[in-house]
Amino acid sequence: MIDLNDIAIFAKVAQLESFSRAARALGMPVSTVSRRVTVLEEQLGATLLQRTTRRLNLTEQGRAYFNQCNDPLGELYDAERALTQVQRKPEGLLKVSVPVTIGQEPFYKFISSFLRTHPRVHVDLFVTNAFVDLIAENVDVALRYGELRDSTLVAQRIGKSVRYLVCTPDYLDGRNPPSRPDDLREHQCILLNGRNNEAEWEFVSGRKSIKVPVSGPVSARDHQAVSAFTCRGHGIGFLPSTFCDARIAKGELVRLLPEWSSPEIFIHTVYPTRRFLPSKLQVFLEALKGWKSPLWIPLR
């Protein structure tokens, strides 16, 4: 197998018509340049350069070989420069996958701000609860909740979420508030990803843990919908603390069973490899770390 480096060395010698000038341009000893060209000639079984004490000329075979090799070498150098530029400057298409819970107006505002900061980056956004194969779909990065199934991917924690039980004061009119998690069986609950309007909520309090089956009038695919129906008094919601805190302080929501909450759920950025990350992905990951999401508490 002929070494492409030897072809590139030969091409530089042919262009400059000198071993010494080619050696300076390539940052190599003259002896190395001469030896690599000799190796190439031996592998080809042809004399490419006619050497004299005063002059260096291409043979007929050398001229034909140089003409065949020069354009492809130029294309390879152009490809290398283009790839290097993409790696160093944030530009090009960035494919991002997020679940429906994240793919809402606050995240769109984040993407909008990111695009204004990096106008040469274009975002292709996958908003879906379906599992996306990052490699098969050529996706650059995904945001995912909870435990990760694919250990071959690179994952970084960027935040965590804890959910509280909340409802409106109006919902409690004429109802006994729950005094323990099991009491939720008797209440209307607004569900996230519930099947047949039923779900199982997990609670922790110190070292204690319990799971309670719940049901209710509405099941939705994202926290925005759950919060909307909770705030309209249709039932008890199990919502992120980042959403609840301000509304509890204003009296718009009441926190129930304050000694109980969900287990911590971690939010990850997931991407195929940590090697040679393009600049567009690097700046996106940094922007995500600095974003104050209404759905999770950032990790510092």
Rank of each mutant, 00 (worst) to 15 (best):
L4A: 13
I9C: 02
A11Q: 07
V13Y: 00
L16Q: 11
L16F: 11
G27P: 09
M28Y: 10
V30D: 14
S31W: 07
T32H: 12
T32S: 14
S34Y: 07
V39S: 11
V39K: 11
L40R: 02
G45L: 07
G45K: 01
Q50Y: 07
T53Q: 10
Y65F: 15
C69L: 14
N70E: 14
L76W: 10
A82D: 10
T84F: 01
E91M: 15
V98S: 04
P106D: 11
K109A: 14
H118G: 02
V123F: 09
F126L: 12
L134E: 07
L143V: 15
L148F: 07
R149E: 13
S151Y: 09
I158T: 02
S161P: 05
V162E: 13
V162F: 02
R163E: 14
V166F: 04
Y171T: 06
Y171W: 04
L172K: 03
L172C: 07
G174Q: 09
N176K: 11
L192H: 13
G194F: 01
N197F: 07
A199R: 06
V214I: 15
S215A: 14
V218R: 05
D222P: 00
H223P: 03
H223Y: 12
S227M: 15
P240I: 05
A246G: 06
K250N: 14
L256Y: 04
L257W: 05
S261G: 09
Y271I: 03
T273K: 07
R275K: 13
F276C: 02
P278W: 01
P278A: 11
S279G: 00
L281K: 06
F284K: 03
E286R: 05
A287G: 07
A287L: 07
W291Y: 13
W296N: 05
I297Q: 14
R300K: 09
